[in-house]
Amino acid sequence: MKMITSSFVKHAARIVSITLLGVTLGHSPAQSAGDLPEIKAQSWSFSGPFGTFDRGQLQRGFKVYKEVCSGCHGLRQLHFRNLGEAGGPEFGEAEVKALAAEVEVKDGPNEEGEMFERPGKPSDAFVSPFPNENAARAANNGANPPDLSLMAKARVGGPDYIYALMVGYKEPPEKMKVSEGMSYNDVFPGHQIAMAAPLSEESVEYSDGTKPTLDNHAKDVSAFLMWAAEPKLEERHKLGFRFMIYLLLLSGLLYLAKRRIWSRLKH
């Protein structure tokens, strides 16, 4: 399954890159943007039919999100309680409470009819950095940093793409002129991305002894976003295994019953 998935991912990535090539060439023939490299499949703890998330990796990934990404990107489908749920980063109850309390949540109206801010509770959703798209664009030079809740399912390649994007910042090729405020990225369609390289060596401090390299940061945050997009992945794999065993046994029984019954047709 793992192999099938990764080869599909490769294949799909190729289809999309060819398509994008067509689109970019069609619209702005001056741009030499066609050569999108293949998104390489990384080895993830969660891929394959028995895959599970690596708790430590998710916790580190959350830290990367919180300290780097969350300045511009929301995660609005998530609630703080999710951070403590089984199959996720599994922070302790007290930690979840503390993490929730770090943000100010708008609530109300109170008895005077005023909206007010209060510290977050585990039942609150993550608060997005900008109240609406216009505010986001105004603060980001016209670009709208997308919400990341489903990013790992909303791009071909999923977490592999996110990882490739994070480590894909490079010097542009000599002939290419990168517009002001934009950065060159190897895997971003069109190669010009409004987000400056967000991660580098030692962007975030790790407390569990993991080396704070760019590669680790990128991997951890990609894994975390995969969990954010698919929080029931572990439950799905676990139930799937049991159901498959059941189906195999039932097929066996039905096959034997079928043979037994049809053997009555003697000629």
């Binding site: 029984l253 039905l254 034997l256 019953a257 019954i261 047709l265 003697k266 000629h267």
Partner: peptide, 18 residues
């Protein structure tokens, strides 16, 4: 029906198990 018109035995163990 096949040549022998015997009613197939529904209480066959395999069938009950399945």
């Amino acid at each position: 029906m096949a040549q022998k018109p015997t009613e197939p035995n529904r209480r066959d163990f395999m069938t009950i198990a399945a």
